[in-house]
Simulated assay, not measured.
Amino acid sequence: MIRIDAHQHYWALARKDYGWLGPHRPVINRDFLPHDLEPEMRAAGVVQSIVVQSTPTLAETEFLLFLAETTPSILGVVGWVDLEAQHALEDLRRLSENPLFLGVRAMAQPNPDANWLAQIAHSPALSFMAARGLSLDALVQPHHLPALDTLCRANPELTVVINHAAKPEIGVRPMDEWQCRIARLATLPNVSCKLSGLTVFSDRIDALQPYVDVLVSQFGPSRLIWGSDWPVLKESADYGAWVSLCDRVLRGLDNRDVAQIFGDSAQQIYGTEVRLAA
């Protein structure tokens, strides 16, 4: 089984565009670069990773692409582009010339307008992305899912990947509304979902299992993608523990389905291929 971490981050604080970091998050308020993660990946049997943007600047995307070009453990980059800007198409065209650029993440979570994704549903940038085979990662919470549904239905050729299972508030709110909205999105063949970022809510199997069961039943292994959300993960769990926890919550699946979630889905959905060392 080839394991790919399809959602992790790198940052260098000296770049000074990580406004969401600071002393209030002491565990992750330092540089995190490939030499920090690679030993943990090797110990967990993870061969490559997809790096995802963590701040809304083109400069960070270019920094991540530089890392990808010089770091064999990086499979590709999901970056950021201002999808509403007049120069969005120019930015996408330039970035997409790099084969390591896999897509764009839309950051709905920090946007005060819960309907923002619906408002950009007919953006020419999304049509361009679909035509180029670029994905749209969606950083969303449950209340953003109706707007995301509108966007996905307006762009049936665009590959959309829900990040962190839309951050269900496990143990805080009933799962019914989240489950209903996830199920509606899962009926769309262009929508996939990441199994990532859940230990921020709970690291107990009995708490996570019902949510993972919903994801597996709704998306199936071919549209469910495993990721770590490292180093944000470090605030609630360590890397090996998250891998082990996912092994346990997926234990009811056969080996082929587990392999699909842990690596094959990422390659198929992002349109890339693991490069193994000779």
Rank of each mutant, 00 (worst) to 15 (best):
231 P>N: 09
89 L>G: 15
124 P>Q: 14
153 R>H: 03
236 S>R: 05
85 A>D: 13
38 E>I: 15
19 G>L: 05
156 P>Y: 12
210 P>G: 07
85 A>P: 08
248 R>W: 00
190 N>Q: 15
128 F>N: 08
86 Q>S: 15
150 T>F: 00
261 I>P: 00
177 E>Y: 04
62 E>Y: 08
111 N>V: 13
173 R>M: 12
136 L>Y: 10
108 A>W: 07
73 S>A: 15
19 G>V: 04
116 W>I: 13
131 A>P: 09
239 Y>W: 07
123 S>L: 13
13 L>H: 10
137 D>S: 04
82 D>G: 03
137 D>C: 08
256 R>Y: 08
245 L>N: 06
139 L>Q: 12
201 F>L: 02
269 I>S: 02
21 L>F: 10
151 L>N: 08
235 E>L: 07
171 G>W: 07
219 F>M: 03
71 T>S: 14
153 R>K: 13
115 N>I: 06
63 F>V: 04
159 T>L: 01
94 R>W: 12
275 R>G: 06
264 D>M: 12
208 L>G: 03
183 A>W: 03
186 A>V: 03
196 S>I: 00
240 G>S: 11
278 A>D: 12
58 L>T: 12
264 D>W: 07
58 L>E: 14
253 L>S: 02
147 A>T: 02
84 E>Q: 14
145 L>R: 04
200 V>W: 05
56 P>L: 05
227 G>Q: 04
140 V>G: 03
221 P>H: 05
110 P>R: 10
6 A>W: 00
189 P>R: 13
267 Q>S: 11
254 D>Y: 07
199 T>D: 01
240 G>I: 04
13 L>F: 11
75 L>I: 09
263 G>S: 08
182 I>G: 00
82 D>S: 08
63 F>T: 14
112 P>I: 12
2 I>M: 15
206 D>F: 05
152 C>N: 01
165 A>S: 14
244 S>I: 00
242 W>A: 04
92 L>N: 07
72 P>E: 11
158 L>R: 13
35 H>Y: 10
258 V>Y: 01
277 A>P: 08
133 G>S: 13
38 E>G: 00
17 D>R: 14
272 T>E: 06
58 L>Y: 06
58 L>H: 09
121 A>D: 10
24 H>D: 12
194 K>G: 01
